[in-house]
Design a protein around this nucleic acid. Structure first.
Length: 602
RNA sequence: GCGCCCGUAGCUCAGCUGGAUAGAGCAACUGCCUUCUAAGCAGUGGGUCAAUGGUUCGAAUCCAUUCGGGCGUGCCA
């Protein structure tokens, strides 16, 4: 990568300047040197501000440091540099250098930006996200977690991590009991056994139960259950319906529904981790085991006939109940067991994506991890704040209250996956966001998804048109295509591997300065892609990729408008084509990373 | 009350591990289609970076305090 090359050149220069004793009291080469973008293109392509940062330690004026560094800098292979007060070192790349980077994009194609996994140590990451209870459909909040979580998993994968994604199914405990009561009542209402007025108050919304518990579905499942259970051919008796069975059916239906909705969002997990099956087994119960470990460590105590974990000792604001007085374990107990299980599977890093309203649980789980002698620093929590929906200009707050839920599948149907994912990814996780329904539905330039996809489609259409025959408007005769199929196939070999020829075409033509600057800016942005991935992965921020894409698309449209490709000299055509195709490659890669389609035609 | 998060253009947001003149998109207004997709481009207007103080060569960015908003503060999950 060009960036690494430049940083290394600067490190070498600083080392030489140090050895020559020209950097004052500075004693060592800095570990980190940032390569900054220039806000003003007149300043150059990239800037280094290390001289200002070293000024304090060196006890020298920044500009003197910059001059000393440049004196030893071998910049010939990248271009030219200038030193500007108060101490910026500005870099202007020469064409060959930019061209070399373009060739790299063409060479790597769909792998451009994808980092080698063998180069990273300690790179096994588990990303757990969504983890909705199997007691209802997925609402917009889950949708944001799904979009961001899957985009993050993908981003980390691109950045060279070995990513494993997981959905924790919370299929044990009180919410399942509540689901059972809800499901039983919902079925009995539909069978006329009880009136709707008798639907329990402390139950999940009836409407959401009715969504999955349809007569033809539950009757078949109940009958199947009955048949497998006995040899008697009896009919289902809805009056004596077993709540647990009704709950199990509802749970399975909700898991199926969630799986389908997530699949429609291009969200797939490596593992669906069932709490019930993995932690609450009859034999070798992991939750009781965790309590025993905590007890042996002296981290538990009895009070009011409940078992308490000494969370306060580990930094929480108070102690937490782990087993209620009636003997039931709390959510925390299972969660500790789950985290122990994750650690025991040998990941180097655990990332949990939680709803922002769960942030109060962080000290508790961290404390517990410490209490069972695992390293809480390996656990990273990402909190995703609420999404509110804007409809007809009015903001409707999302909450779990009855009737106020907007489900992901409805949104998917309304705006499509590309727009849904993009909008949900395109903002920082720990900021609340507003989902503008009308904007997401728009299929025009106002909608950033279409704007980006359109850039890709435009690039694709150039390629298509190059190799297809044209009809002359005046003579109505068919003319030969610009490139034959064979030439098109050969494109990469013929125009993309000769670094000294591609961009020189521009200097031979009467290309105006603005157009050249557009091209420079576009190429610089294209080769920025791997850096964007690295930076975004580092701070776990997929939205950086979407922000990058919007900017890149804008630069491409600008380029497209200023530079015709078909109908110019062959030299110029190839030079421009190489840029258009590199753009197509990078846009496609970035969209793929985000789980959004890159259409060839729109 | 305490804890966490947020506050940048009318709206939605970038920029925040300190760097050069604070940027996009939408909305408003003005140009550009006989030429590769106008789902586009070019241009104009729009700011007390919530406020105050501090740190320093330099602060939207870091620190403190204040104000405003959200969430949390259960033997719920």
């Amino acid at each position: 990568m060009l960036k690494d090359k430049i940083i290394n050149l600067f490190k070498d220069a600083i080392k030489k300047a140090l050895d020559a004793g020209e950097l004052g009291q500075l004693t060592e080469v800095p570990n980190e040197i940032d390569l900054d973008k220039c806000k003003n293109p007149d300043h150059g392509d990239r800037a280094i501000s290390i001289a200002m940062k070293l000024a304090r330690d060196a006890k020298m004026a920044p500009i003197k440091i910059a001059e000393a560094i440049v004196k030893y800098l071998d910049y010939k292979s990248i271009g030219s540099v200038t030193v500007v007060p108060p101490g910026f070192i500005n870099i202007i790349f020469d064409w060959n250098c930019l061209e070399g980077s373009l060739v790299e994009i063409h060479r790597e194609k769909e792998n451009f930006g994808y980092f080698d996994k063998t180069k990273k140590e300690k790179n096994k990451i588990l990303v757990e996200y969504v983890s909705a209870n199997p007691t209802g459909n997925l609402h917009l909040g889950h949708g944001r977690q799904a979009a961001l979580g899957s985009a993050l998993a993908s981003l980390l994968d691109w950045a060279g991590y070995d990513v494993f994604s997981e959905f924790y199914i919370n299929d044990a405990g009180v919410q399942i009991e509540k689901l059972s009561a809800s499901a039983k009542a919902a079925i009995q209402i539909q069978e006329g056994v009880i009136p709707e007025s008798e639907y329990p108050e402390e139950a999940y919304p009836l409407e959401s139960m009715l969504d999955v518990l349809k007569p033809e579905v539950y009757s078949e499942k109940l009958q199947a259950e009955l048949d497998s259970d006995s040899n008697l051919k009896t009919k289902v008796d809805y009056k004596t319906l077993d709540a647990e069975l009704a709950g199990k059916i509802a749970k399975d239906l909700f898991i199926d529904l969630q799986t389908k909705v997530l699949g429609d969002m291009e969200v797939r997990f490596d593992n669906w981790f069932s709490e019930k099956e993995n932690l609450h087994q009859e034999k070798d119960n992991k939750v009781t085991e965790i309590c025993k470990i905590l007890e042996d460590n002296g981290n538990l105590y009895d009070q009011d006939s409940a078992l308490w974990f000494k969370a306060k000792h580990y930094g929480d604001e108070r102690d937490r109940v782990i087993q209620k007085s009636q003997g039931v374990y709390t959510y925390l107990a299972a969660d500790i067991a789950y985290h122990k299980n994750k650690f025991d599977r040998g990941f180097d890093k655990l990332i949990n994506i939680w709803g922002g309203d769960h942030h109060g649980q962080e000290p508790g789980i961290r404390g517990a991890i410490k209490a069972i002698n695992y390293d809480p620093d390996l656990l990273e929590l990402i909190f995703i704040q609420m999404v509110s929906l804007q409809k007809d200009g009015v903001e409707v707050k999302m909450s779990k209250r009855k009737g106020d839920i907007v489900n992901v599948d409805e949104l998917l149907e309304e705006v499509g996956n590309d727009a849904l994912r993009f909008f949900l990814i395109d903002s920082q996780a720990n900021n609340r966001m507003v989902f503008d329904l009308e904007l997401a539905k728009k299929q025009d330039k106002d909608n950033p998804v279409y704007y980006i996809q359109y850039a890709h489609a435009r690039a694709a259409s150039i390629l298509r048109n190059l190799s297809s025959a044209k009809i002359n408007i005046e003579t109505k005769e068919e003319e030969a295509p610009e490139l034959s199929e064979a030439e098109l196939q050969d494109l990469e070999k013929t125009i993309f591997t000769k670094p000294n020829e591609i961009l020189q075409a521009f200097s031979g033509e009467s290309v105006d300065e603005d157009s050249l600057q557009t091209i420079r800016t576009l190429i610089l942005e294209l080769i920025e892609f791997p850096n964007v991935i690295e930076d975004a992965a580092e701070i776990r921020a997929p939205y950086k990729v979407s922000v990058y894409l919007k900017n890149l698309a804008s630069l491409f449209h600008q380029f497209y408008n200023e530079n015709r490709i078909i109908g110019v000299s062959e030299e110029l055509m190839k030079a421009r084509l190489s840029i258009a195709l590199a753009s197509k490659t990078v846009i496609a890669n970035a969209l793929r990373l985000l789980g959004i389609s890159a259409p060839e035609k729109m």
